[in-house]
Design a protein around this nucleic acid. Structure first.
Lengths: 216, 216
DNA sequence: AAAAAAATACCTGCTAACAGGTATTTTTTT
DNA sequence: AAAAAAATACCTGTTAGCAGGTATTTTTTT
């Protein structure tokens, strides 16, 4: 007796992967295929193609990077505007930035996970999202704090200096940082000055590249 | 007649992958396995374990990320000090920073590629490295130039504007750019202004992230 | 030859960042 | 309790970037 098709070949979830890092994109594709649950119907390396391709291919699930040139993950999500259909979106990011996560939540995406997630856990997350669950990383705070402290130690930055640095990363001006921390403008300037003296970056590029490596 | 073992099961290259991003690490592992040429004997997610594990497992090849917490790729390379044995090292980085590449060259690593490399090309690179070749991203300028031109078209940037943009990336001030291009300070400012109007970045972070995607 | 696009140049005024100070208070360590 | 480290605050002056203009010349396209 031959089993019915639907049992032997259960419907696989149709996935589109969007990531400019080809290696990651290709690796992700293999991870999903290997699970046996997903069928990667398209790999997009340039987020500007997302809208057209997603419209024509109608995937069940989109697994997308956050940091991409031209159009970042958030912009793509807004462009896709999946509110009409039931395409699920999962964001895979390098960072667990609270504010960013909030923005994605508001856009109604299914999950936000970091690239430090193991493959097995990713599959679990995707399964849950396909079942309608919403998952947002917030628990692995401990790890991030350890990394941060380690960094602070390395560069002899104080707690307050690290706080200021994080706010600088979040595009805050000295004035706004002062407001946020309830400090005088001058105090924040002093902290900035001391940070600069300790880190001694030669160029702004270097500084901004460094900021990228900071969590939160 | 049974073929000799070495033909049916040619010796696979023993690889250790070092990357704190589990998803990338796991994906890379699948890419290497799928090629049939490599055997992933260990996946390291915390670079601080690299020294001990590489010493005991003696891999033929190490595929390693550059940006990692605690110990970055360069520090690990220096720690491993593979000059004594013939373990090859390939660095996979997010950025193609010339200065960084130079540092790795000096340390004698086999290749430095970016995460935008497709999986097929990665395998080719690894094969070549195992044959003793050294590969450092710089020749695939053609591709990058095409991307750039494409980019210029999409954003309607003129040739001159692209030239100015490249110099901005190189940390030049408006004044120096003017000198370099033999233009008036005001002219360069006008170009900058027009670039800004065309690209309309919301934040400096965005702008610097974008600059990273541009090649010299 | 005319029109459009690109490149050139100048001017004003504002703002944020930053360098180089000084100085007091609070917290932590010895 | 004393010393050291961290956090607080203020002041001056410079500079680069940028927004908002105007305007001429050169090159390219139609």
């Amino acid at each position: 007796m031959v089993p019915v098709l639907s049992l032997k070949f259960p419907m696989k979830t149709k996935v589109i992967i969007i990531d400019d890092h080809s290696l990651f994109n290709d690796g992700m594709s293999l991870i999903l295929k290997e699970s046996g649950l997903f069928e990667v119907i398209e790999q997009i390396y340039d987020s500007r193609q997302a809208q057209t391709k997603c419209f024509s291919l109608k995937p069940d699930l989109i697994v997308m990077d956050y940091n991409m040139p031209y159009l970042d993950g958030l912009e793509v999500v807004r462009q896709l505007n999946t509110s009409g259909n039931d395409t699920k979106i999962v964001i895979v990011s390098m960072y667990a930035d609270k504010k960013e996560i909030e923005l994605f939540k508001k856009e109604g995406v299914g999950a936000y996970i970091t690239k430090t997630t193991p493959a097995t856990q990713l599959i679990e997350t995707l399964k849950k999202v396909m079942e309608g669950e919403k998952l947002f990383e917030s628990k692995n705070k401990a790890k991030i704090i350890i990394e941060k402290d380690n960094f602070a130690l390395k560069h002899q930055l104080t707690k307050r200096e690290m706080e200021v640095l994080r706010l600088i990363k979040q595009e805050e001006t000295t004035e706004k940082i002062a407001e946020t921390l309830n400090l005088s403008f001058y105090t924040v300037e002093t902290h900035r000055k001391n940070i600069n003296h300790k880190l001694k970056f030669k160029t702004k590029k270097e500084f901004y590249a460094f900021l990228e490596t900071l969590e939160e």
